[in-house]
Computed example of a mutant assay.
Amino acid sequence: MSGVSRPTVALGLAAVALSLVTLVGLPTPLQAVAATAVLVLLPGQALARLTPVTDLALGTLLVLALGLASLTAVSTAMFYLAVWSWQACVVTMGVITVLACMVRARQEVAMARARQEAPC
């Protein structure tokens, strides 16, 4: 796992863990927090990390925008395909987060290799 940052790994693991916890069931207030994280914040963060944005305010806005946009696209597609369920939506958003983390990890590994191969 050389070259992959801890935030990338933590984000992917959090998506898997919170998706499972949301599906298993929690007391209502905790389930609402976990569902919000899985459905909006984690996918938004994972997708925002694929962009070169460094400004904190713009990055925060981008996390929310990308999270809500991906949730809207997934929910709308599921609705029109007549396969909508909140459980499937949670799993799909978790998968999107993990896939975005895998793409980010690949970018990080490529950047680490480029640094190693660069002449001094």
Rank of each mutant, 00 (worst) to 15 (best):
S2C: 03
S2F: 12
G3K: 08
V4Q: 12
V4M: 06
S5P: 03
S5Y: 09
R6S: 09
R6E: 05
P7D: 06
P7E: 06
P7I: 06
V9I: 15
V9P: 07
V9S: 09
L11H: 12
L11S: 15
L11P: 09
G12E: 05
L13S: 05
A14T: 05
A17F: 15
A17L: 13
L18E: 00
S19A: 04
S19H: 00
S19F: 08
S19R: 00
S19M: 10
L20E: 06
V21S: 07
V21G: 06
T22Q: 13
T22V: 06
L23H: 02
V24P: 08
V24T: 06
V24R: 13
V24F: 09
G25M: 09
T28K: 14
P29W: 10
P29Y: 04
L30F: 15
L30A: 14
Q31W: 13
A32K: 11
A32R: 02
V33D: 08
V33L: 10
A34G: 06
A34I: 08
T36I: 03
T36Y: 01
A37E: 05
A37R: 06
V38P: 02
V38F: 10
V40K: 02
L42D: 12
L42S: 13
Q45L: 14
Q45I: 12
L47P: 14
P52Y: 07
D55N: 15
D55R: 15
L56D: 06
A57D: 07
L58E: 13
L58V: 09
T60L: 13
L61H: 14
L61F: 14
L61S: 13
V63D: 03
V63I: 09
L64T: 00
A65K: 03
L66T: 07
G67Y: 07
L68M: 00
A69I: 01
L71K: 04
A73W: 07
V74P: 07
V74T: 08
A77C: 02
A77I: 01
F79S: 01
L81H: 08
A82D: 12
W84K: 01
W84D: 05
W84Y: 00
Q87F: 07
C89F: 03
C89Q: 09
C89E: 00
C89G: 08
V90A: 08
V90S: 01
V90G: 00
V90Q: 05
V90H: 01
V91L: 07
V91A: 07
V91G: 07
T92H: 00
T92F: 05
M93G: 00
G94P: 05
G94C: 02
V95I: 08
I96L: 11
T97G: 08
T97D: 02
T97L: 06
L99D: 03
A100E: 04
A100H: 11
C101P: 04
C101R: 04
M102V: 09
M102N: 12
M102A: 14
M102H: 11
V103P: 12
R104M: 14
R104D: 15
R104Q: 15
A105N: 13
E108Y: 09
E108K: 09
E108W: 09
A110V: 02
A110Y: 01
M111K: 03
A112P: 12
R113D: 09
A118E: 02
A118S: 02
A118Y: 13
P119M: 14
P119Y: 15
